[in-house]
């Protein structure tokens, strides 16, 4: 079950990537520059409405075709970061828009620059507002790592399939696999709920 280790590693790297893509993308999506908004929206809408599996194939096989050979883990992680990241952009955008305009007014009146307003005032609050939806997004990321088995057998689902090819106890194996994911999802959900409770003391 050492595929489990890879699954977790891909998930953790993925979470970092998704958050970066999400924050930068949402900032662009809500910026004053029409160009930034259009670029971010086009990116988010395109990746969000297309299947992650196809992107995994793309980053691995299509790039191979033009001479770029990415290791399966990298290709898979990149594909998922873009896909889940696109969803995160939408989630954070809604969160940013939900921050009361009075906050931005007050920050402006104090002389904070737009960048300072975004990083100190808007983003922290948008994050707290988006936490439940973001949490679900990251849990999806964890589950979607199983798709990487389509291009390689590093993570846990892939290895399970390999084992099944050799032996025949597939029902049991899938049940165990399911249990592994359930436990991971449970842990992640609990962490997210804990974070929600901790941040709830700020009220809104």
């Amino acid at each position: 079950m050492w595929g489990g280790f890879w699954t977790l590693e891909i998930t953790l790297t993925g979470i970092v990537g998704v958050l970066i893509v999400g924050i930068v993308g949402a900032a662009m999506r809500t910026s004053k520059s029409a160009l930034a908004r259009v670029l971010a929206t086009a990116f988010a809408e395109f990746f969000r409405n297309t299947p992650p599996l196809v992107w995994i194939y793309f980053f691995f096989f299509a790039l191979l075709g033009i001479g770029i050979k990415l290791p399966a883990v990298v290709a898979g992680t990149l594909a998922l970061v873009f896909y889940q990241g696109a969803i995160a952009i939408e989630i954070l955008r809604a969160g940013i828009e939900a921050v009361a305009p009075g906050q931005v007014e007050a920050a402006s009146a104090l002389g904070l620059s737009p960048l300072q307003q975004f990083t100190s005032i808007v983003l922290p609050q948008a994050f707290r507002i988006s936490l439940p939806a973001l949490g679900n997004n990251l849990i999806s990321l964890l589950k979607n790592t199983s798709l990487i088995s389509a291009i390689g057998t590093i993570e846990i689902t892939g290895i399970a399939n390999d084992i099944i090819a050799i032996k025949l106890s597939s029902a049991e194996l899938y049940l165990t696999l399911g249990a592994f994911y359930l436990i991971c999802v449970f842990i992640m959900s609990s962490l997210i709920r804990y974070a929600e409770r901790r941040l709830a003391r700020y009220g809104s």
């Binding site: 007014e105 007050a106 609050q125």
Partner: peptide
């Protein structure tokens, strides 16, 4: 301008976090 002028709002607008 904003260093010379301070503003207090009807709805306070304190930063909740």
């Amino acid at each position: 301008l904003r260093r010379r002028v301070g503003m207090v709002f009807q709805h306070f607008n304190l930063f909740p976090h």
